[in-house]
Amino acid sequence: MTLLAIETSCDETSAAVVRDGRVLANVVSSQIALHAEYGGVVPELATREHLRNLVPLAQTALREARVTAKQLDALAATRGPGLPSALMVGLKAAQAMAFALRKSFLGIHHHEAHLYSPWIGGDPPVADFASFQPNVSLIVSGGHTMIVHVEAELKHRLLGSTVDDAAGECFDKVAKLIGLPYPGGPALEKLAEGGNPRAFDFPRPMLNEPSDDLSFSGLKTSVRYFLRDHPEILNDGRRLGDLCASVQAAILEVLVTKTVRTAKRLGLRCVTASGGVTCNRALRKELAAACGKNALTLRLAEKNLCTDNAAMIGILAERKMLRGDAATPLDAEIHASWDLE
């Protein structure tokens, strides 16, 4: 099966060509520079950029894969969740192509695609579902943070999620409080590299709660009050690094501890992680250390597949079609607030 997949759920436009579990092309256009001026994603600007970039990116993906539109067997696109106007660009474009080519179309849940991105790897990327094992999956990004029990391939159950801010949102908001440029998370991570993570003791919200839910709003507020009382830190390079390292340590301890604890409670031997924040080097290191200590197998999404991309959309769509899932109607609408079921 040869499939063209499209992803436009937020501020990255992506098109990928997938054939028989292999990613033949995966092209991504980032909008970071466009939104930096505003300190965050502006939905209207994101939508305009998707409209400008989608057709050239799809053409590039097909050209890199050496595939023509007529050779496609199916099309797929992210149906949700995401920014409504951004989602519509990709979904409606893919539906229109499917109609014109008389091919099947499948709308994909963005988070479900993240669940299986740790099972894609190599150069060129190939899906390795032969190695699949039941796992606890951490999806952590700027908009979402959740812990999911993946019981079997294409069978999962949401165990817990953030009750307020996502982990990535906490990174970005703290970065904004200390005056770092957008996107704040990577900038904070860079400053944290030379800092002392035990210099300041920030709260670990819900760390010891029995549920699998998470919370990061209180941590952000704690940092805001700390900076109000200690504004001089912003002008002290060494202490600012310590502050960033301490905030990062608090976020990561919650993510790692709750994920590993959940896996142990369920008697599972595998942990996976995906989403944009999984690019964070310290998170990858802490997860590896915790899983090693508890004899757990760890599968991390490759960094180029952690952020939004069409390759993971295409791999999941192909898998679902091979299983016999019904095609998505060509007049189906977006699901901007689609819950992971």
Rank of each mutant, 00 (worst) to 15 (best):
M88Q: 11
F200G: 05
L4I: 07
V256F: 00
L252S: 02
L340A: 08
D331R: 06
F171V: 06
L219A: 13
L138M: 12
S161P: 05
P181E: 05
G241P: 13
I233C: 03
H109G: 09
T259E: 01
R48Y: 14
K293W: 07
G276Q: 02
H50A: 04
R265Q: 13
N196W: 00
T68F: 09
G80T: 00
K264G: 05
R19V: 11
T13W: 04
V247Q: 02
C170D: 10
P183I: 04
K264Y: 12
I334A: 12
P134E: 05
L340Q: 08
V41R: 08
I334V: 11
E37C: 06
G80W: 00
H149G: 02
R228P: 09
D201A: 12
R284G: 05
P197C: 00
L138C: 07
R79W: 12
V136L: 12
A310C: 10
C10A: 07
V174A: 00
A98P: 01
A288W: 13
C270R: 15
F132S: 01
V140E: 06
F202S: 11
A46E: 09
T272H: 03
P56I: 06
H230S: 05
L45A: 14
P205K: 01
E189T: 07
A98D: 11
G292T: 13
F171W: 06
C244M: 03
D339C: 15
C306Q: 02
N304E: 15
A332R: 08
S246R: 01
T78P: 00
T68H: 07
A289G: 15
P329G: 08
F200D: 08
R48F: 13
L252F: 04
C279W: 01
C170R: 06
T297V: 08
A46K: 03
P183L: 10
D236W: 01
M88D: 07
S222P: 03
R281E: 15
A25K: 02
P43D: 02
P329A: 14
A61I: 03
D229S: 13
R198V: 11
L188C: 04
T297N: 08
K303C: 09
L255H: 05
L180D: 03
V271P: 04
A166F: 08
E341C: 10
V163F: 10
